[in-house]
Amino acid sequence: MLKIALSAAKFAAVGLLGMAIDFFFTWLCKEKLKINKFIANAIGFSIAVVNNYILNRIWTFSSKNPQVFEQFLYFLGISSIGLALNSTFLYLFHQKLRLNFYFSKLIAIGIVFIWNFSANLLFTFNNGK
């Protein structure tokens, strides 16, 4: 149980860095490049996914799996489901509940964290278990 808690804390730390990367690129695309806010959201999220995979593989889960590309595809698939959930929650909170766009994005990220950690622990970085 302690090992899972430590992994969750590391995953959260990587996620916080990923969130900063996500927010920066979302802001850059939406505010400065004037890209549609939902496309900007997908761009920020995607850049963060690559960063998060590398850091989680090396630091959080210390993966030695030689199938790096296959493992990344699992991570990308789980992250894509996370993106769909993130966008859905973002739409609901921002468009339907009229909450601030960035506050809505923060709430969505928090909810999707649970999905991302659980699915990656069980499927991406399970070390053949």
Rank of each mutant, 00 (worst) to 15 (best):
Met1Trp: 07
Ile4His: 13
Ala5Cys: 14
Leu6Gly: 13
Leu6Met: 15
Lys10Met: 07
Ala12Gln: 11
Ala12Met: 11
Ala13Val: 13
Val14Phe: 03
Leu17Ile: 15
Leu17Phe: 12
Gly18Ala: 06
Gly18Asp: 01
Ala20Asp: 07
Phe23Met: 09
Phe23Pro: 04
Cys29Glu: 05
Lys30Ala: 09
Glu31Cys: 07
Lys32Gly: 15
Ile35Leu: 08
Ile35Pro: 05
Asn36Trp: 06
Lys37Gly: 10
Lys37Pro: 14
Lys37Val: 11
Phe38Tyr: 15
Phe38Thr: 04
Ile39Thr: 12
Ile39Gly: 10
Asn41Tyr: 05
Ala42His: 02
Ala42Val: 08
Ala42Gln: 01
Phe45Ala: 03
Asn51Ile: 00
Asn52Gln: 07
Asn52Trp: 00
Leu55Arg: 01
Leu55Met: 11
Ile58His: 12
Trp59Met: 07
Phe69Asn: 13
Glu70Arg: 15
Gln71Leu: 09
Gln71His: 10
Tyr74Pro: 11
Phe75Lys: 03
Gly77Glu: 05
Ser80Met: 10
Ile81Tyr: 06
Leu83Arg: 00
Ala84Glu: 04
Phe89Ser: 05
Phe89Pro: 08
Leu92Asp: 09
Phe93Glu: 05
Gln95Ser: 14
Gln95Trp: 12
Gln95Asp: 13
Leu99Trp: 08
Leu99Lys: 03
Leu99Asp: 09
Leu99Met: 12
Leu99Glu: 01
Asn100Phe: 06
Tyr102Lys: 06
Tyr102His: 10
Phe103Glu: 06
Ser104Val: 06
Lys105Val: 00
Ala108Asp: 01
Ala108Trp: 02
Ile111Thr: 05
Phe113Asp: 06
Ile114Lys: 07
Ile114Phe: 13
Trp115Gln: 10
Trp115Met: 10
Phe117Asp: 00
Ala119Glu: 03
Ala119Leu: 09
Asn120Cys: 08
Asn126Thr: 09
Asn127Tyr: 04
